[in-house]
Amino acid sequence: MNRKVIALLLGGFSLLLLATFFYGLFYASDPQSIPSALIGKEAKNFTLTTFEGQTIELKQFRGKPVVLNFWASWCVACKAEAHIMEAAHQKYTPRGAVFIGIAFNDKREDSLAFIRRYGKTYLLGPDNEVGDISLNYGITAAPETFFIDEQGIIVHKVLGAVTPEVIRDFLEERLP
């Protein structure tokens, strides 16, 4: 084999390995940078007993756009988005949207204190001890927000504090 060809192949493979190494180091190992495997898929149904004792099922809201938020009282970014979520709920729920907040890995009394402090009034309930709902949604950290369309398909996901613009963009085109 020609020496030049070998040198070229060797160089090519070295570059490929280096690229893979850096991809793994700076991109593939950071959950924040990885797109959710659930986008475009049907949102998994769940049953939630809210802190007020109401039992709800995700599938009962089929036909309405749903903003599903995973939060915890210990999470700093959840404090930042608490008012945003509540304000969006006040604005869009009367127009037909559904806002659900699932407390994840949190103590019940801490969740309730958080709810009182930030005046959260939408559908809020705790995940179970295993975290079945959170694991079913591939949660990596709190807060995470899923945007589920009228057909029950997850169309978007936000890692970290949600912004009013993201909620507006999702809901304005779907609500009357």
């Binding site: 890995n105 001890e129 295993v130 975290g131 079945d132 959170s134 694991l135 949660i139 990596t140």
Partner: peptide, 10 residues
């Protein structure tokens, strides 16, 4: 971490 504990429980 909390989530890793959840995963082990699952």
């Amino acid at each position: 971490a909390g989530l890793a504990t959840n995963m082990k429980m699952k």
